[in-house]
Amino acid sequence: MNTATLKLLALDTSTEACSVALQTGTEILTLDEVCPQQHSKRILPMVQQLLSQTGISLNQLDGIVFGRGPGSFTGVRIGVGVTQGLAFGADVPVYGVSTLAAMAQAAQRLYAAKQVIAGIDARMAEVYIGSFILQNGLMQPLSSEVAIKPQDISGFDLSGEVHAVGTGWQTYAEVLLQKQPAVIADDILYPSAQDMLTLALPAFAAGQFIAAELAEPVYVRDDVTWQKLPGK
């Protein structure tokens, strides 16, 4: 993979924030904006702003990365729909990245974190939550991502320093800290598209981007139990 000529766009609308990032070679430009219920109005102008800033057109992109969820049902659907529309028009492949993994990657970028528990306030007294561990510079899932009531989590079984990110830790800090002592990163509340680019690069190099029509959201609301992944 020749990163010097690589052009990737990433976007996320799965939470209260809109995030767009554009990678051209080794440079990444990012726009993050908290805009509850304004995603459908803001996301395309934000994309256009970065494209105009770099002088790149959609059909010059090598691919589009999107936040696949979990998050707001409406927000996740908007992100997938916008990605498909842009990708169809430009005839480029796409790749979905976990919003929880993106926040975990942000903790690695900002704090050199090696173990992270990411949680998004899922409303209805639940959190979307998952744990991650650093492997070769990238945050990899240690547990399955679930929607669960914080008090129903059996425990994370992590030792050593653990960082905690996302709105779930703001809303349910007291309960979650009883389950797992952690350093809460108050400045990482929402996923940022720049971290989705980082996580998507190996998939692009491996040819794992897919056709736009195959892009799917991940809601996880149907998953109700905390499960560690096999071999983790």
Rank of each mutant, 00 (worst) to 15 (best):
S143A: 05
I43F: 15
H163R: 01
S19Q: 14
L58E: 04
L22P: 13
Q115E: 03
A147F: 03
Q208C: 04
L61G: 05
I120Q: 05
Q84R: 13
S131W: 02
K149N: 06
G81I: 11
V183K: 01
G207W: 07
L31P: 13
P36L: 04
A102K: 08
A113E: 03
A90F: 01
A122N: 05
D195C: 10
I210Q: 03
T83S: 14
A203V: 12
A203N: 09
I78T: 13
G155Y: 02
L58V: 04
V80Q: 11
S159Y: 00
L51E: 13
G63Q: 03
M1W: 02
T13A: 13
C35E: 14
A107P: 00
Q60M: 05
T30R: 14
E27A: 12
V94A: 05
K7T: 07
V146I: 11
A122S: 05
A182Q: 06
S19A: 14
V80F: 07
V47E: 12
G79R: 08
A104H: 02
G155S: 10
Q140F: 06
L199N: 06
E27S: 07
A200V: 15
T54N: 08
Y128R: 08
M124A: 04
L229H: 09
F209P: 02
L197W: 08
A205V: 14
A10T: 12
V146Q: 10
I78V: 14
G96R: 11
Q151H: 06
Y190H: 10
V127Q: 01
V218H: 09
V183W: 00
F209L: 07
F156L: 03
N2M: 04
R221A: 10
L177A: 08
M124S: 07
S19W: 10
V220D: 05
Q227C: 11
T198E: 06
T13L: 10
Q60N: 03
G55P: 12
Q178D: 12
R42Q: 14
R123I: 09
D32R: 10
A106E: 15
I120L: 11
E213K: 00
I43W: 15
L61H: 04
Y111I: 00
L176G: 08
E213Y: 01
H163E: 10
E145L: 01
L86R: 04
G231V: 06
A193D: 12
S144R: 12
A21E: 14
G155F: 06
V80S: 08
Y111D: 00
Y111N: 00
G85A: 11
Q170P: 00
G67Y: 14
P230S: 08
R42A: 11
Q108R: 01
V92R: 03
P93H: 00
R42E: 10
F132N: 03
G79H: 08
G89L: 02
S131T: 05
P191Y: 02
D157F: 07
H39I: 09
D187I: 13
V224S: 13
E33K: 15
T30P: 13
T83N: 10
P70Y: 01
T24G: 06
R123K: 13
